[in-house]
Design a protein around this nucleic acid. Sequence first.
DNA 1: CTGAAAGCGCTTACAG
DNA 2: CTGAAAGCGCTTACAG
Lengths: 356, 356
Amino acid sequence: MPAERPAPRRVTLADIAAACGLSKATVSLVLRDSPLVHADTRARVRAELERQGYVYHRGAASLRRGGSNAVALVVNDLANPFFAEFAAGVDAALAEAGYVLLLGSTGESPERQQAVLASLAEHGPAALILSPAEHTDAARLRRLLGPRMPVLVFNRALDGEGAAGWDYLALDNRQGARLATEHLLAQGHRAIAFFGGHRDSSSCQERRAGYRDALAAAGLAPDPGWLVECAPTRLEAARQAGALFARDPAPTAAVCYNDAVALGLMAGLAARGRRAGADFAVVGFDDIAEAAVAVPPLTTVAADPRARGLQAARLVLTRLRGELPPAPHAVVAPVALRVRRSSLALSDSLTEGTAA
Amino acid sequence: MPAERPAPRRVTLADIAAACGLSKATVSLVLRDSPLVHADTRARVRAELERQGYVYHRGAASLRRGGSNAVALVVNDLANPFFAEFAAGVDAALAEAGYVLLLGSTGESPERQQAVLASLAEHGPAALILSPAEHTDAARLRRLLGPRMPVLVFNRALDGEGAAGWDYLALDNRQGARLATEHLLAQGHRAIAFFGGHRDSSSCQERRAGYRDALAAAGLAPDPGWLVECAPTRLEAARQAGALFARDPAPTAAVCYNDAVALGLMAGLAARGRRAGADFAVVGFDDIAEAAVAVPPLTTVAADPRARGLQAARLVLTRLRGELPPAPHAVVAPVALRVRRSSLALSDSLTEGTAA
DNA sequence: CTGAAAGCGCTTACAG
DNA sequence: CTGAAAGCGCTTACAG
């Protein structure tokens, strides 16, 4: 920006010190509320700081001290409500603690993830909260981040040597899928599919395990044809809906990998003349905002992403304060079933109930 | 993080220089791809950089050069899909240009906004993209940000001296509301309300102006009772729905301040036994994801927040390159009507059409 | 094509 | 309670 006046130099500690007839050292102590400084001096400095519109230069301070009040957050897709709410939670907790958020997103690409992290790492964040892209190579990540950066892995497990020593916050995927499946069993469904997700992602594996747990506890074995993979997006789910009915006996209900898939499935069912909640029961996972306003409203497993974000940030802050044991800390966040109308028993009708 | 080994000192330019038998200056030149350096030297340095896992220290570089590759983005609420998608667009464009995103959110509180900006400013971002909180005091903001920070104000106009010289990117609110209103007129509605928003926000004023434009062009004057204020949230809108029917003649359609309000109104209508799209026509503004899956699908004005984010970031990057005229640059982004089923003429039925 | 030196704005022992 | 000096890791003229 071309300025009229010849670039009004930035106000520094030296300016304040000179104006007060003090040394930079003393002004610096005032800035950090040192009790060493005489109250009168402090007041004088404070006034001058204010008068000149001084802005602290954190870069310089970080350089000198070797530290930073920035925390990096890298998610897959900020436009995904799950991650947006997660990020909002992280941001709130960090801001409260006086930290600043450096944000990046990867679009599920390990390559972009590497590039984004390299760029963020140059800013020397105090810690990293990472929701890893699919097929992340932990060893490669570790090479980039070095041995000392505190890392909290969120949502998807990272295996191998690389991830050793990194903290981990996950949803209780297994329990969530178990609850979802039990709910359908309780409504009389016996032929229950698990729909969507990629088999090789840790969260999908865990959710499938919970699904199997519940079936096994009910003495049922899932028909292999009831395990349908698809990308965790609405569009793909709508396209794959037909795969559920390829076999005989076809399922009468499905536990879905997540809400996006569940909503896509509901659209796919409609396109086939089937009504979710009436002809076919559906349960999702995540409880995104749309779940409540879908028609019929979607029964789902609530992950409370904002609470997860707060939790993640607090974990990291605790780690930074050195108050966490050195061993990697793994936390599994509880999850709850939110029952709505997409998962009625086959015999129930949808004509009851009121509009959303 | 307590480390086993006694804190393996960070690798610096000096280390690389020493290992290569060169000076720091030369290594620094290699880092910035200076053509001055001999190709062999460059290769040698590159290899050593890689071997030692060197990480550039941008803080130090910024301190010396006086510049930064960070851009700050401050929005009202990251959990709001409109802002989440906007932020995703900003992030994508910045990352592509090698910039890094510093994120903050204000929750519509001018106090928090002031605090968040103060915190971000200490990191010396190259520029700021700000979607201001309601009732922002531009002069106060200016005092905090100083005279030199390039600022792009998004979405809501800031008035007074304070905002002088700041760039501005807005939606074409007036035109959007006009399109929405014309659409309802074309379907035969004559008694059309403007529902939701706060009268004192610039975007609400603009949208109301577009609404009046369209009515005036059709030779109609809005009944004052058809201008209903309410907070731009779903819940408040649902509560206020009744206010539309307080007067006689009651409107048969409403242009809503945004989609959240429109969805709330649809729920409020349902609670009163009226069906949106059949008994009462509704149009929204924003085209959030839920608009397409609502029942009936919501006709709305598409703002394409992701595209706005890309646009905002590009504007700022152009400004930083000094390629924009010094005068403040104001851009009004076009907006388009997305016709769906919530805005049918009263006579139409909802039984036609296929599922979303 | 490469090096020696100064300096960006802060903080931190160390004196006094 | 306050000050002088060194140094964090880089870049930038200036020499050569």
